[in-house]
């Protein structure tokens, strides 16, 4: 990965399309505790939004709600303007939402290339006849998938490890595989849960470059839950500060960060 990319956050024009992902007054209780309370947000196409907050603030809950992993007790999730409440994670995926996980969730019995390819949208995957007979068209589809998978792995610099199982990779590399897998979805928005966790500075920079590149090239919206502000400073258009299940502040990243530091008593001037 060279440094030929612009490190500063890219500029996107305002569009009048519906937000790729939106949540309206999302609320989730665990027992008697409100993990999330009336949180609303909108992600316009192509925007990068960072979500920050202390542990337990509700960031992962928000992400889980926005991807269909859990259902809100109140409120509604919209993907591309369509209400999605009660739908399964697979339905969210088909609607154009992709994600990574806080605790890495790859498929250990699959090679990393298979990990990436299995996420690709494909209607013919579920045909038992194609699988068993393996005619020419099926072989063609397999090769096509493989090529696209390799391209994605190239993007994250892991092309030469395509045939490896995840056990052979470092933690940072596995995170990159998870990213490649999410990108394979060809979604309109990707939600990343602490994508840089466990990465060293090099890997983090690599990750950042990849994310900026695809955000620009594919006009792909991103929601990044992160503790590492450096990453968000480089690429986020907006930031959201969650605390105790509520939105405390929302706006330009710098101002949000300043507000956080301010509330912690850190003198920033």
């Amino acid at each position: 990965m060279s440094g030929a990319l612009e490190p500063e956050r890219p500029h996107t024009e305002l569009s009048h399309e519906p937000p790729v992902l939106a949540g309206s007054r999302l609320t989730k209780f665990y027992g008697g505790v409100a993990a999330l309370e009336r949180v609303s947000l909108e992600i316009p196409p192509g925007e990068v939004i960072g979500v920050v907050g202390a542990n337990g603030a509700g960031k992962s809950t928000l992400l889980n709600l926005l991807t269909g992993a859990i259902r809100p007790d109140d409120g509604e999730v919209y993907v591309g303007g369509r209400p999605m409440n009660g739908q399964s994670p697979a339905a969210f995926a088909h609607a154009g939402v992709a994600r990574t996980f806080q605790k890495l969730r790859l498929f250990p019995s699959l090679t990393i290339l298979e990990n990436v390819c299995v996420a690709m949208p494909s209607t013919e995957r579920w045909s038992l006849r194609s699988a068993l007979l393996r005619g020419r068209s099926e072989v063609g589809r397999e090769e096509d998938e493989r090529a696209r998978g390799l391209a994605l792995l190239r993007l994250v610099g892991l092309e030469d490890r395509a045939k490896h199982l995840i056990g052979n990779l470092t933690y940072g590399q596995r995170r990159l595989v998870e990213l490649a897998r999410a990108l394979a979805r060809e979604a309109s928005v990707v939600l990343l849960d602490e994508p840089a966790a466990g990465m060293n500075a090099n890997e983090e920079r690599q990750l950042c470059d990849v994310l900026i590149r695809i955000n620009q090239a594919r006009h792909l919206a991103l929601l990044i839950v992160e503790h590492r502000w450096a990453l968000l400073r480089r690429m986020a258009h907006r930031a959201l500060w969650l605390s105790d299940g509520r939105v405390v502040q929302e706006g330009a990243p710098e101002s949000v960060f300043a507000a956080i530091l301010d509330s912690a008593g850190v003198i920033t001037r």
Binding site: A69, A90, A93, L106, L110, C117, V118, A119, L132, R181
Partner: peptide
């Protein structure tokens, strides 16, 4: 052959980690 096919890989993915697989559209 089923195990090596795209279908078989999808089956194994669902087996390995159901939530992750479903989040990927399976």
């Amino acid at each position: 052959r089923l195990g090596r096919s795209r279908l078989g890989i999808a089956l194994r993915a669902l087996r390995d980690d159901e939530l992750a697989a479903r989040s990927m559209g399976l």
